Simulated assay, not measured.
Amino acid sequence: MRIAVLVPTMGGGGAERQIQLLTEHLPAFGHDVCVITMRSLGQGSVEHPLPTGTQRIRLDFTGRQLLSSPAKLRRFLRTWRADALLAFNGPAVLAARVTTVGTRLPLISCVGTSALPSGPRRLLMRISRRADAMTVFNASQSLEKYAAAGLSDPQRSQVIHNALADTVPATVRPRQAASPFRWIAVGRLTDAKGYDLLVESMSQLIQAGHLATLDIFGEGPGAQALERLIEDRQLGHAIHLRGFTFDWHSSLDDYDGFVLSSRWEGSPNAALEALACGMPMVASDVGDLAELLPEGRLAPPGDSAALAERMRALMGTDAALRTEEALAAQQATCARHDLTPVMQRWHEALQRLVEEKSRGTLR
């Protein structure tokens, strides 16, 4: 089966990480995977590497090329004889829906966020949703929100959780927390990740006399604003921006806790990988994290005071209890996001659509 994957870029985000895993592991089921990107990344940005031999097509869906790009994509898919098209992230989903109008090519739109689109984009998503042969969500919360808003068809939707790479490192060694307590956060520097809220939480902790530091790993358009905020709050001694690295897992033994401050998420990849390493965690109550973490480790999204309180509570928790909680979350995370069954679910979903197409029952 020939599977084309459309994505805005192959930058260092969670969706791109899942595409990387799909290109690595779907060929074991007999699938040929091609990745199509819609625009180039800025100079100095980091891309997720694709396996050697994976076909990569670069189309320009920007500026004057925007109107002609769907026709170019349609020609490529026809020439390549694609059996199905997967589209990841909002811009790619809309482009794929336009491209497949009037064709019999099965489209799977993949939604990786619980945030609902707004304005004209929301109207476009609602109107075009019938183009999907299937809509895949990486968290049940996202599926429920989109279905309730009329943005997806529950009968043609399913949840396929993000897969954890089989290269995630071994369990972090349990130990008594250091003083100061060392926090780590990982993710793109965007508004969705809520790092401004996290800076405020750190400010509240330090003003209350708690000893803590925070290292943030990531890159993105919000870097300069975040640097200014840290400077304005006079927190340069406690909060450090470490830039982007694929290998942040290797330094987890240097930290005492992982913190996720996102305003919204589908299935936060970095948090899942940290949980799979047995890392104690405090997080915004986003995606399906409530199924993996105790209630007392979750804060309402957007509430910096509540997040600071959850961080303070973890800092004051006995090391043995922290380790016990972390190991329980690790077991639940690894069971739900194990690579092999997740890839099997993708294969079954693709196989079902192609079979429906051959029988003439594909909607």
Rank of each mutant, 00 (worst) to 15 (best):
E231P: 03
T99P: 02
T167R: 14
Q18L: 09
E355Y: 00
G278C: 06
R228M: 10
T135R: 10
E291Y: 03
A115D: 02
F217A: 10
A328F: 10
L272R: 02
A170V: 09
L151G: 09
F181D: 07
E355D: 03
N138I: 06
A178H: 15
G220F: 00
A147C: 14
I206P: 00
S358E: 07
A326D: 09
V168N: 06
I57D: 01
G194S: 13
H48W: 10
G30W: 00
R297A: 06
S69R: 03
T323Y: 12
Q155W: 11
S118N: 08
V199M: 04
T62D: 05
V354H: 00
R175C: 02
S250L: 15
A71T: 12
M202N: 00
G266T: 08
T79G: 04
A308G: 07
F137R: 03
I108A: 11
M134Y: 03
L26F: 00
Q234A: 12
G360A: 09
M1D: 08
D166L: 15
P169E: 12
Y195P: 06
P70T: 07
L252D: 02
S251T: 15
D288M: 05
G243P: 04
Q55K: 13
P91L: 06
D232W: 03
L211Y: 12
D318V: 09
M315I: 13
D32H: 10
A92C: 13
S114C: 07
S157G: 14
R156D: 07
A95Q: 01
R310V: 00
P300Y: 04
M125V: 05
I57W: 01
T79V: 12
P300I: 01
R345P: 00
L85T: 06
V172K: 10
V101S: 04
G243I: 11
L321G: 00
D132E: 02
A165N: 11
D303L: 06
Q18H: 12
D132T: 03
G257P: 07
R322P: 08
V136P: 05
S251Q: 15
L50V: 03
Q20T: 05
L197P: 04
R352T: 07
W80Y: 14
M281A: 11
P27Q: 06
F76K: 08
R130S: 10
C110R: 11
D32S: 14
G222I: 12
H161A: 07
P117F: 11
S157T: 11
E295M: 01
A326F: 05
A335Y: 02
G316I: 13
I57E: 04
T62F: 08
E348I: 02
I3Q: 04
P120Y: 01
E16K: 13
E16W: 07
E24P: 00
V186H: 01
A149H: 02
R56V: 06
G266W: 09
V93T: 07
A238T: 10
L350W: 10
G236D: 04
S140G: 14
R228N: 15
E309M: 00
E325L: 13
I57K: 08
L94I: 12
H249I: 11
R359I: 03
P268N: 10
A177T: 13
T245S: 11
R359W: 02
A238C: 15
T323E: 15
D215N: 09
G14C: 04
C334N: 02
R310L: 01
I160M: 03
A308K: 06
S251A: 15
A306H: 04
A238D: 02
Q176W: 14
